[in-house]
Design a protein around this nucleic acid. Structure first.
Lengths: 255, 255
DNA sequence: CCTTGACCTTTCCGTTACGTCAAGGTGTAT
DNA sequence: ATACACCTTGACGTAACGGAAAGGTCAAGG
């Protein structure tokens, strides 16, 4: 099937100006030009336009799209799989915004107030994209740790200030844990200060604190390899020490 | 809570440049300017920015947003309800695109081929918006029948050509129906031609044709007030006549 | 006290992805 | 033969910022 410029434009729901522009920048050249100078598009161009629109829909710049689809290694199937992932992420974002609306409506009707943070949940589209790019170890090499940390911070929806406070608290926690381990006793004042700091640290991530959950997390610190490795890097046996300290801490405040 | 420009920017996930621009165009003025000339934002500005971002997310121009939120009749709750509707529509559009991807992937793997129309299903975002605006009888007054017809055509995902063919066919069907009714006999050649034309007309909307479904639709034409009114406007009793003609037609080709 | 470094200001030019004329050629249905 | 709906190439306009220049402000640390 062959199309004139308006035929293809109507088919795809874009303007003829758009198709001429795509021709101009070399993104989508017509299959041929007829005697009268008209642009004639064929089946291949139809499929390419479909791919272009998928990328455009996802906010990729035309320049980038051109780079991608003219790449000799371009794999249409993989591209579609990528699109699917992105679209699912976008769907999730919309669901976040819908939740946000429900909360805001609730607040308007005299329900519980929202924090300023919550008011902007779901809007950080670009940041989510950045995170996607930054995902994985390879990203750290390509953009450096700073970029990845930046992205994480944004994902956590924190202000600069809060993030710095978290960093400080993390450092203090690790420092105190190290010192406490020198005493060798999880029940010692330093050991218990570590547990208290850990509770404070947790409030950055948890909406509500409960002793049970805290104690449960402590157990997991030893059971889960990833957590264990993180704490053992500070000092060998740190995960176990922290677990014990937390258990004593949560038991103590229980009575 | 008060924020400096970067504080609010970080909170909302926008750039400071964006906030300065919003100030410049009068969309979001800071609560006050301090002695040093710094922009200081308060709680009201936080809430306004949230509303702005909702509208922006939905593709409303900043000019339009300004008009909306400075309107003395502006109702924040109604606005949120509107946002919710739009977001749900967008979610539906994404689901359409996801279906499109599945189909395209299936075709790549040697599954059944897609029509060129299908390849662009889900992309007509602007057209869907237009349709939303054009929805309801009031819209016909405001934009005229042409605009609404245009929108309908696009929604049906037809090319200009196909649409013209449909219009022609519709006219021919109505014409033939009128003439056939003069004979008074649904079984007459003209009556049967009407039924045949109706079948052809149906293929514009149905993916697959079956005599049973066709006969069923004919019954509905009489039972459903809306359909009955449409055909009776052509001539009184037209719905019944067409139903009978179709029943004879589908019975005949049955044997 | 003085210097850093992260903030803040205004001004101005650049960019992307087209929309919108303008001025003219083409194709075909009546 | 004349509409009328197509097509062409310029060329200018636009929205919503990004980014750089040139400079003022402020809290923290040596």
């Amino acid at each position: 099937m062959e199309y004139t410029i308006k035929g293809l434009a109507d088919l795809a729901g874009v303007s003829t100006r758009t198709l001429r522009y795509y021709d101009e920048i070399g993104l989508l050249k017509p299959k041929r030009i007829n005697e009268a100078g008209y642009r004639i598009y064929g089946p291949d161009e139809v499929d390419t336009l479909q791919q272009i629109l998928f990328y455009r829909e996802l906010g990729v710049s035309l320049d980038e799209i051109k780079r991608i689809i003219t790449d000799p290694d371009f794999n249409p199937e993989q591209a579609l799989l990528d699109h699917r992932e992105k679209l699912r992420a976008r769907k999730a974002q919309i669901e976040l915004l819908l939740e946000n609306i429900e909360k805001t409506l609730n607040q308007l009707k005299g329900g519980k107030p929202m924090t300023d943070q919550e008011k902007f949940a779901g809007f950080k589209k670009k940041l989510v994209e950045d995170n996607e790019k930054a995902y994985g170890a390879e990203a750290r090499k390509r953009w450096g740790d700073d970029a990845v940390d930046e992205s994480n911070k944004k994902l956590l929806n924190m202000t600069e200030e809060q993030y710095q406070e978290l960093e400080k608290l993390t450092a203090e926690l690790n420092e105190t844990l190290k010192k406490a381990m020198e005493t060798g006793d999880p029940a010692s004042p330093l050991g218990q200060k570590t547990a208290a700091l850990h509770k404070e640290w947790l409030t950055f991530f948890w909406k509500e604190y409960s002793k049970e959950a805290h104690a449960g997390l402590a157990k997991m610190y030893v059971a889960d390899e990833r957590f264990k490795a993180y704490y053992d890097k500070i000092q060998d046996g740190a995960a176990e020490f922290l677990r014990d300290a937390i258990h004593i801490y949560t038991d103590k405040t229980n009575e």
